[in-house]
């Protein structure tokens, strides 16, 4: 992480390591952040734990993350002609990639009683943002745009929603990209139909959408009780210290994906 952003990111990381999810003060403290990713000098690549301290030259890339909070409210402001409240609109419209978080606890059991699911507003807001992005780019702009869907809280997904979508409890592994795409699409086609239609529409002018990639985030938690919110559960690591119990494989694969996008950009 960039030195300038170290304090903010360390604070939220320390909150997780002390068992709490980031509080509102910590959330407000972060609007954008820079990461520098690369490989340690190793023949085995980023997924290997056997690596030396030295960075391998020519493999690093810098990434600028921009957080767009309360998307619904931001898009209402934008549609009424105001600029976005917290971030530079240009950063958003000229972005190379977008991480679209899908709160897995809100994936609905779409059916006769609930034909549109529970993400209708979010779906509309994401679609509007993609439309704005498309309009802001010159026709035939060669720059590709990379949509990335990240299913957050996937450990707490409603199992009935998975049954209804006719998919297994556990998504295919990070390397099984075709199976993984089919798995994710079974959920997104019913929960974010407008967003998916936008991204997969071949007729779209002005922006070249790369095939989306899909990741699934899990953090082990102790369930909330009457008096306590969800707590992050920690594990004893090999070295005797405490470690977060989360889907590290997914995050490493995502970092690798972002590094590839950055080197092509």
């Amino acid at each position: 992480v960039d030195l300038a952003s170290m304090e903010e990111i360390s604070e939220v990381f320390q909150q997780l390591m002390s068992g709490s999810f980031p509080d509102s003060a910590a959330k407000e403290g972060i609007s954008d952040i820079n990461f520098h990713v690369g490989y340690r000098r190793s023949r085995l690549g980023i997924l290997s734990r056997r690596r030396s301290k030295a960075w391998s030259p020519d493999t690093s890339a810098s990434l600028h993350f921009v957080l767009l909070r309360n998307l619904d409210a931001e898009m209402s402001r934008f549609r009424s002609g105001s600029s976005l409240a917290n971030v530079n609109l240009r950063d958003v419209l000229e972005s190379d990639a977008m991480v679209i978080l899908v709160d897995s606890t809100r994936l609905a059991v779409v059916g006769e009683e609930n034909p549109h699911g529970t993400m209708t507003n979010y779906d509309g807001a994401v679609e509007s943002l993609l439309t704005a992005l498309q309009r802001s780019r010159a026709r035939g702009d060669p720059k590709r745009f990379h949509p990335i869907f990240l299913f957050s809280k996937f450990d707490s997904v409603n199992k009935k929603a998975l049954r209804r979508a006719k998919i297994e409890d556990v998504p295919p592994g990070v390397r099984e990209t075709t199976l993984r795409a089919a798995y994710a699409r079974a959920l997104l086609d019913t929960n974010l139909p407008k967003t998916i239609a936008k991204i997969t529409n071949r007729e779209v002018q002005g922006v070249r959408f790369a095939p989306p990639s899909y990741f699934f985030s899990r953090v082990a938690t102790e369930a909330a009780t009457e008096n306590l919110r969800d707590r992050v559960r920690l594990l004893r690591g090999d070295d005797g210290g405490w470690e977060l119990d989360y889907s590290a494989d997914e995050y490493l694969a995502l970092l690798e994906r972002l590094r590839t996008i950055a080197t092509e950009a």
């Binding site: 957080l67 950063d91 978080l101 957050s152």
Partner: peptide, 26 residues
């Protein structure tokens, strides 16, 4: 430097996502 926008509904885990991305790096 490439720009990556993170979007999500309220309490969908945007900040936790960044913290875990950081955790995966170190």
């Amino acid at each position: 430097m490439p720009h990556i926008v993170i979007i999500g509904d309220r309490d969908s885990g945007k900040t936790t996502f960044l913290a875990l991305l950081y955790a995966a790096q170190v």
